[in-house]
Design a protein around this nucleic acid. Structure first.
Ligand SMILES: [Zn+2]
Ligand SMILES: [Zn+2]
Ligand SMILES: [Zn+2]
Ligand SMILES: [Zn+2]
Lengths: 145, 145
DNA sequence: ATAAACCCTAAAGTTAACATTAGGGTCAAT
DNA sequence: ATTGACCCTAATGTTAACTTTAGGGTTTAT
């Protein structure tokens, strides 16, 4: 069976990004088209689509394009790395992810506590505990305060 | 007792931000000095300090400056808003954070599975299972699709 | 065969949240 | 009275991740 190839507009629609974004990713060497048509049109493979999903997803969880490039690009220079290197790299990334989850969980907890204390009623927010708490210097202890 | 007023450098140090940040917040109408000295120096009041804390706290829990400006608007004329308004705002933020945590967990799982399959040895990564797996398009099916 | 829809490159513009630079007053102390 | 720390404005620079613009080929359908 012949592999299906998508033109840039088709890929863009499938992944819900703009064609400009796709061309931009190419300049950043994040996603190269599988091939080009005789007219020079970019032709993307199914695998390219999956790689695009990975990029978008990693982005969504807070990885920068530079980090994603690292994540994706290890296999390009296989000879220069050992399994030890590779494993170490993924372990670092996992640790980073855990740290991010931690941060977000704390923020979520803080917001949830604020939210819980608010009556949510239809009267004026004059007494709103969220607003009061946010201006309290002691609650969240900003670094050097 | 006379109210204490801080010069911009003092306020900056108290809240651990740069003076440039404070002047920047002024241009964004997020934090205006209580008054100016005869020489034109910004003079901040204790209440200004509280508002700065408010800004920094909100920022720390993931609000953008634009969102904070909205929140400040609410805080400044609390009479015009209800607790319901405020609660909605934080509930939306909490939902956003939860979605991010969810996505991060998925990526972490994917990476952990890769990591587990790598031997971690000192030889070239030519045979590395992580790299081989990275080439597998099905792995990238992290997102929808 | 022509118009709409789609593709190309290169370059400049945009947004957020500041930081830096340039050129110059102000204030406390030596 | 001069140094050094601190303040001012206005303008420009920074980084990330795109978007827009300009000018011009290609495909497809009528
Ligand atoms: Zn209430
Ligand atoms: Zn409330
Ligand atoms: Zn190995
Ligand atoms: Zn390996």
């Amino acid at each position: 069976m012949t592999a299906t190839l998508y033109k840039i507009g088709e890929l863009a629609q499938k992944a819900d990004v703009s064609v400009e974004t796709l061309r931009f990713y190419e300049t950043k060497n994040l996603l190269n088209a599988h091939s080009r048509s005789s007219a020079g049109y970019r032709l993307y493979s199914e695998q390219d689509l999956h790689q695009l999903y990975f990029i978008l997803h990693a982005k969504k969880v807070g990885f920068s394009l530079a980090e994603i490039k690292q994540l994706l690009g290890v296999q390009v220079n296989k000879q220069q790395y050992t399994c030890e290197d590779v494993k170490h790299f993924t372990e670092e990334k996992i640790a980073q992810i855990e740290a991010k989850i931690d941060d977000l969980s704390k923020i979520k907890l803080a917001l949830a506590q604020l939210n819980k204390a608010c009556c949510g009623g239809e009267e004026s927010a004059m007494h709103c505990s969220i607003l009061h708490t946010l201006e309290d210097p002691t609650l969240f202890q900003v670094k050097g305060a």
